[in-house]
Design a protein around this nucleic acid. Structure first.
Lengths: 334, 334
DNA sequence: TTGTAAGCGTTATCAC
DNA sequence: GTGATAACGCTTACAA
């Protein structure tokens, strides 16, 4: 392997001079610079970032820990992260936890050992067991998409509670009185906030709340199973509120198999849109979160931390959701 | 920052002994090992992989260079890569090139500087300008999804030519004679192979080929525009063959806006499925590639190279595509 | 404008 | 079983 030393020898200068040319730092005479550059080209020298990072204590690498890149919401977040990081000269390591804290911790340890400059974390559980690990190590971190309890940390997310309340109000305004929320797992803030928002909408309307919430996972399979349970209820509800896109699609499949028409026999609304580029005929009424912008904003804040810019105190950056009305929520009931 | 030295001092041993404990290498007396482990716990020591990698010449990091993680085909590939890599103790850096060779090269240089152990490359162009860069540096590489010209390299992909031929035959067997292929960009092997397969299907049927191929990008916008062009033709074609999923969806939107019913007035088939978890009502007839398995297999081969296992000569691993018949291809014409 | 010397935190090598 | 020493390839601090 060609090292900086080899280049220095070939160019007849000291190693540090080559370093200065490579990094465009400090003064180097034009003539010397050219000599060095020729030597670099001749030898095909590729700087070794490991050595540089060891000395400079910067890796120019960020990490994004999320639950599942396969969910288009997170795919889009990831793209926002990558673009923003790339613009700033950072590379990004991706980790899928599948909502498991054990995986989260495993990855975290590896990342800290790698001395990544910063971590973007979508915590598997709002307990956020792993946050202390990061902060104790002095690594910069921004939490994405979800709240965490009792933690001093920057967060970029949407107001799930408010958006869920709006979705709930929508269904109520359409005349539904028997609505069931197909929720995500307990202990995840987005799931809990969406439940709280739904509750608030019901409370505002003076409606009682019992047996109206099912707990599951943020997956299609879970949506399917929860919808099956709902269909066994009497009287049968007239509207479903899916806590995310996957749950909605799973629920729809269950309804379809039972021959229940959406929205005529069962209205359906959901959290998280599916990107228009993936959908032949947009159908779901959703509260859409600005996934790409979330990724961007989170990186922005993380870079501020790395550069000691921006406000010193921890911020909670709330991005707006958008209510998108489509066919699945149906018309006003008689 | 706590270093291995600090731990050594605290435990009253030499640094190398701590190293042996951390890495489970060499002999360490049980009593000493426990003393060291206690010191590690007390101090909250986190090993520094940079230093280790500098010495050991291994980073336990792979890189995946693809065109756009936002395309569900690549999202799934990425998940397959991440899972397989993670199982083997490797982390993965992701890079989006948006089909641009300049981006590909930029990322590549950064990755080589980072001394990643191996690179998974979906080359932007079949010229694969950047392959020599990698190989010259002695870094392991596996090419994914696409062919490259004149290169000694392992490739994991599907047989686009054959699958495209089958899709073409399908349309012909349904009685279509005026079919237009909405292709991807020239210079990309998947695009060219799909054209070749389509041509072969026509040739087999003894049908002439003129004005039957439009070139565009692998994007929804491009699909939309190409479909608009098709609709201006007389006589109007009766079937469209989209070279990927995004093109198909863009084309469908153009057709819909013009009030043209699919498949009654225009049949539509495409390459690449959309994952069922994302689709309310599967509709497109497609040639589906096993994206997850492609990612897995590619990592498998890459790890073989890193470990000097497996066949020495370069392999082309072809994975089977699956023809999935749905509504969009329509019935046999009168 | 250029160079010297030391050190970043680990592990390879060889010795005890 | 354990340790001393050097080295990985680069940059920081200081000197000339």
């Amino acid at each position: 392997m060609i090292t900086l030393q080899d280049v220095a020898k070939r160019a007849g200068v000291a190693p540090i001079t080559v370093s200065r040319v490579v990094n465009n730092s400090g003064y180097v005479a034009l003539e010397v610079r050219q000599r060095v550059q020729r030597a670099i080209a001749d030898l095909g020298y590729v700087p070794n970032t490991l050595a540089r990072s060891l000395r400079s204590r910067q890796t120019n690498t960020l990490a994004l820990i999320l639950t599942d890149i396969t969910n288009p919401f997170f795919t889009t977040v990831a793209r926002g992260v990558e673009d923003a990081a790339s613009d700033a000269g950072f590379m990004v390591i991706f980790c899928n936890t599948d909502e498991r804290e054990s995986e989260e911790e495993k990855y975290l340890r590896m990342l800290l050992q790698k001395r990544v400059d910063g971590i973007l974390l979508v915590p598997a559980r709002s307990g956020a067991h792993s946050l202390p690990l990061i902060q104790q190590q002095g690594t910069a971190v921004v939490v994405l998409d979800r709240r965490v309890e009792n933690a001093q940390v920057d967060v970029v997310r949407c107001d799930s509670e408010e958006a869920a309340c709006e979705l709930g109000r929508l269904l109520l305004s359409l005349g539904h009185t028997e609505i069931v929320l197909l929720a995500g797992p307990p202990g995840v803030s987005t799931s809990e906030d969406r439940i709280a928002g739904f509750r608030r909408a019901l409370a505002e309307a003076g409606m009682p709340l019992r047996g109206r919430i099912l707990h599951g996972e943020f997956t299609q399979e879970s949506g399917y199973m929860m919808a099956e349970q709902v269909l066994a209820l009497t009287p049968r509800p007239t509207a479903l509120f899916a806590a995310n896109n996957f749950i909605a699609i799973g629920a729809f499949k269950a309804l379809e198999e039972q021959g229940i028409r959406v929205p005529e026999e069962m209205a359906l609304v959901a959290f998280d849109d599916i990107p228009p580029s993936l959908v032949i005929a947009p159908f779901l009424t959703v509260a859409s979160q600005p996934a790409y912008a979330m990724g961007q904003k989170a990186v922005e804040r993380l870079l501020q931390r790395l550069r000691n810019e921006g406000p010193e105190e921890c911020q909670e950056i709330l991005l707006p959701t958008e209510l998108i009305l489509r066919r699945s929520s149906g018309e006003k009931r008689a």
